[in-house]
Design a protein around this nucleic acid. Structure first.
Length: 214
DNA sequence: ACTTCGATGCTCT
DNA sequence: GAGCATCGAAGTA
């Protein structure tokens, strides 16, 4: 039986955690007891003290609300009116998190399609806000709850993904810190978000950059 | 399959 | 009032 990840597990480097969460199962139990789940296939790390995406401009102040959330608790970042699901990392008072960017639907697909009707099944959960809608999550209800909550929790991967199975790329949609290789995806999985670059582009990324996971 | 472009709602100025 | 860690629709292939 897979283990439910506990909040204490997230008092750690978000870059490492983002990588380790690939292959985990995100489980949502609806108010009527329906179980929806999906395999985590794409994540992204944010780590303020060393992250230009956080310290640049408006982001710095914006993190203050997030900083009051203890590690291993859910939080939502809003972008363009869309809620993005994250887990707070490191110790409380530090702004660091892992963003869940895409999942591969496992259980409860009909209910997900009910929450978020799409014509192509591929589009159901292949984006950070898409998966929030497909799971029927209400940010107001889920924010600040532990990642081990019955209604929304994470099961550890059966087997951690090897380096060869992980595609490391740059984050998207931000100005500063574009170059940091802090987005992780399961290589070859069709359920990753449309913007994940091909292998060729990743190779170019490697020589132009520094910061590593640690 | 790909592109472009407007709407979204929340946060900070 | 601006800008954004995005999405969806509409257009072209």
């Amino acid at each position: 039986m897979p283990l439910t990840l506990l909040p204490a597990h997230f008092n750690a480097d978000p870059v490492r955690l983002a990588r380790e969460l690939l292959g985990a199962t995100l489980v949502r139990v609806t108010p009527d007891g329906l179980r929806l789940s999906g395999r985590v296939v794409e994540t992204e790390a944010y780590d303020c003290p060393r992250d230009p995406a956080c310290t640049a401009g408006r982001f710095h102040a914006a993190r203050s609300a997030e900083m009051s959330i203890p590690p291993g608790h859910w939080l939502f970042w809003f972008a363009h009116g869309h809620p993005l699901l994250q887990v707070a990392c490191r110790e409380e008072g530090v702004s660091a998190s892992v963003l869940i960017r895409a999942i591969e639907p496992l259980e409860g697909v009909p209910k997900m399609l009910d929450y978020r009707p799409v014509t192509r099944q591929r589009d159901l959960t292949n984006g950070p806000a898409k998966l929030v809608y497909a799971l029927g999550l209400d940010p107001m209800q889920v924010s600040h709850r532990p990642v081990s909550s019955p209604e929304l929790h994470l099961l550890a991967p059966e087997k951690p993904l090897g380096d060869a199975e992980i595609l490391v790329t740059a984050r998207v949609g931000i100005k500063e810190g574009r170059n940091l290789p802090w987005r992780f995806a399961e290589r070859g999985n069709p359920w990753v978000s449309p913007g994940v670059p091909s292998m060729e582009m990743v190779t170019e990324l490697g020589d132009s950059d520094d910061a590593e996971a640690g």
